Computed example of a mutant assay.
Amino acid sequence: MNDSAGQDKRRFDFGDIVRIDGYEDEWYRVEGYTELNYYSLEGMYQESYYDLARIPDGLYLDGYDDNMTLICTAEEAWEALEKRKEKNRKKTLNIKSKKSSQEQIDDLLDEHNDFMELYRITRDKEYVELAKLAFEFIKELQQNPKLRTYKN
């Protein structure tokens, strides 16, 4: 089978960023795809699925055309990730919540891990700075558990 024939049938390409039904808050990068052909006396049936890596931690997931939505193409991915980084930065810098100190610490640890994974993927050192900032907030919370708002 000619590779270009399969490429015409795919809705998503390598490096595209997509969203999966049921996981609307998470972004995934298309890492690869698989095309299977089934042959029988009645004819041929083709099935395709995509290999996806969750951003920022790389968790693997299979996706199918009917449950994936394109967020941006590979060419637009850098800009989209930068915008998401800025949104996450604002969220980290201004946490207002009625959560307990332990819940806030758990959230900040999640943020730290997300930033470090984004650094691993992009090598953008600003993610390391944001991860450090999350740890600074954790230290403040441990020293003053009643503290609820953090600002830069």
Rank of each mutant, 00 (worst) to 15 (best):
A80H: 09
L59G: 05
D65G: 07
V18E: 07
Y60D: 13
L70D: 02
I17M: 05
Y60T: 02
I55M: 12
Y23G: 00
L59F: 11
R29F: 10
E24I: 11
I55F: 11
Y38I: 04
G63C: 11
Y39W: 15
L59Q: 11
D66E: 14
T34A: 02
L52A: 03
D66V: 12
N37R: 08
E31V: 15
E82P: 05
Y23F: 11
D62E: 15
Y64L: 00
S48F: 04
Y60S: 10
Y33E: 03
N67T: 12
Q46E: 13
I55N: 04
I17E: 01
P56C: 14
N37Q: 09
G32E: 07
L36R: 07
R29T: 14
Y49F: 11
E35C: 01
R19W: 06
E47P: 02
Y39Q: 15
N67D: 14
R54I: 06
L36G: 00
G58S: 10
A77V: 08
S40E: 10
E79T: 09
S48G: 14
R19E: 12
A53Q: 13
Y49N: 09
D25G: 06
Y64I: 00
L41I: 06
Y49H: 10
N67E: 14
D51Y: 12
V18R: 02
D66A: 13
W78N: 13
Y33L: 02
Y64C: 04
L36C: 01
L41W: 02
T69I: 04
P56L: 14
V30K: 03
A74R: 00
D21E: 11
G58E: 10
E24D: 15
E26L: 01
Y33G: 03
I20W: 01
A80Q: 06
T73V: 07
A74N: 00
T34H: 05
E35L: 05
I71V: 15
R29A: 09
E35Q: 06
I55G: 04
D66K: 12
W78V: 14
G32I: 03
E79C: 06
A77W: 02
E82A: 11
E24G: 12
E76P: 01
L61S: 09
Y33I: 00
Y45D: 15
V30R: 03
E82T: 13
G63Y: 09
P56S: 15
L41V: 05
N37C: 05
D21M: 07
